[in-house]
Structure formats: C-alpha cells, structure tokens
C-alpha cells in the first residue's frame, strides 16, 4: 500500500472537478431544504449522514409529503443499491496486491463521481493507494457538506443575478461524467458503454430516470459477460 502525503494531496487535487461540481448542487440542496421547512442544521445533518445527492432531494419530497420515516428510508436505500458494485469493480482494477485495510473509512466516500475518478486514474496507469482515496473522498465530502451549509445559509436566489455562472456550474457534472467516460473508454469497453447508454436512454424515456440508471448500469455490466 502507498500511504503517503503526496498520494493524499494528489487525491485532494484530483477531486477538484468533483468539488466544483458538488458545491453548486449541494448549495441547491441547502436552499431547497430550507425552503421545504427544514432548519439549516437539519439540512447539513442530511448531507453529513446520507451523503447521496439524488436521495437527499428525494428525502425532501418524502418528508414534505408526510411519508413515514421508515417508508422514506427504504425508498432512499433502494435508490443507492448500485453502489454495491463500485468497491469490487475498483479493487479488481487495482489488482491483487491492493490494500483495503482502511476501506471501512474511505469507502464511505465512494460516490458515483469519486468511483469514476478513481477508476479513471487506475485506467491511466496510476497505482492504487488508500491515501489517494482518502484525499479524493474527503475533498468531495467536505464540498458536499460545505455547499449544503452555504445554501441553507444564503437561501434562494443567490445565483439569480449570475445566470451564465449558474448555467456553467450546472453543466459541471455532465462535463465531469463525460471526461470520466473518456478516461475509461477503450476498444474493450465499447460494448458495455454502448449498451449502457442505450438502456439508460430507453429506461429513462419509457419509465423514469431512476429506472434508466438501473437499466443502464445492469445492462452495460451484463454486456461485459458476452465474449467477443
């Protein structure tokens, strides 16, 4: 295992696009949460404890609709089942010698974007390091919590005077996912990528975005089982 400050710092730096992507979304969540009647402390608590973007926005809808806590919790849990694949997929790419001694801690930060960034780094030839994972995950987590707190504090309309800035920030995650996709794209991954894109499009348009995401991930992963 590589446990070093440079690896930790490299993780922090690699998190920059995630930080820039998370901050405005978390800001929006903070605004939406206070508009939904939550206090600033409750909004931040949701970001600290749940730490999953789409789930948190859904949590607001469930809470304001008066859904029982257990029903709301199980709905949120179902949304994030896809994350079970991320750790094993990352460790497979990291190779047999990769340490997972501190995975109980750094894996908490294994969101879609952190997973994509880490996988892309490995695909570009970087060695797996738990310190790097800590740096990457910590920066993203802090951006999420900080953005939520700022949004809850500022309230609505903070970016209304700067529509172009708001638009650019809104495009940040799309650009990040495209860059991450490019970083893992190769002849070998073309089929899973194409199947995932088609399945996600079909599922989203025919059913809902949540079903589209599930269809894309499962369809693409299953496409990897087919031999060329």
């Amino acid at each position: 295992m590589t446990t070093s400050r440079p690896a930790f710092r490299a993780g922090l730096f690699a998190a920059l696009p995630i930080v820039l992507g998370y901050a405005p979304i978390a800001f929006s969540f903070g605004v939406a949460a206070t508009r939904a009647g939550l206090t600033g402390a409750e909004a931040v608590m949701l970001s600290v404890v749940i730490y999953a973007g789409a789930s948190q926005f859904l949590a607001l809808a469930l809470v304001t609709s008066g859904a029982p806590a257990l029903v709301a919790a199980f709905t949120l849990i179902a949304m994030n089942v896809r994350h079970v694949l991320y750790g094993p997929a990352l460790m497979r790419q990291a190779g047999s010698g990769a340490s997972r001694r501190h995975a109980w801690a750094w894996a908490w930060g294994l969101t879609d974007e952190v997973f994509g960034q880490a996988l892309g780094a490995l695909a570009r030839g970087q060695r797996f390091s738990e310190s790097y994972m800590f740096g990457l995950g910590l920066a993203a987590y802090m951006a999420w919590i900080g953005g939520t707190a700022a949004g809850a504090w500022a309230g609505g309309g903070a970016l209304d005077r700067w529509p172009a800035v708001s638009a650019g920030l809104g495009f940040m995650l799309t650009a990040l996912f495209l860059a991450l996709l490019l970083s893992v794209l190769s002849r070998a991954t073309l089929r899973p990528v194409a199947v995932a894109a088609l399945a996600c499009t079909a599922g989203s348009l025919a059913l809902s975005p949540a079903w589209g995401i599930l269809a894309g991930m499962l369809g693409g992963a299953l496409a990897g089982l087919l031999r060329r």
Binding site: R92, F177, L180, V193, V195, A197, G219, G224
Partner: peptide
C-alpha cells in the same frame, strides 16, 4: 466487474 465501471460512467453521463 470490469464492465461495471465503463457502464456506470456511460449511464451517469447519459442520465
């Protein structure tokens, strides 16, 4: 597992 990462990135980009 090897296909999971690329599939996830393609899915999230499309989404």
């Amino acid at each position: 597992l090897a296909a999971t990462g690329p599939a996830a990135m393609a899915t999230l980009f499309v989404a």
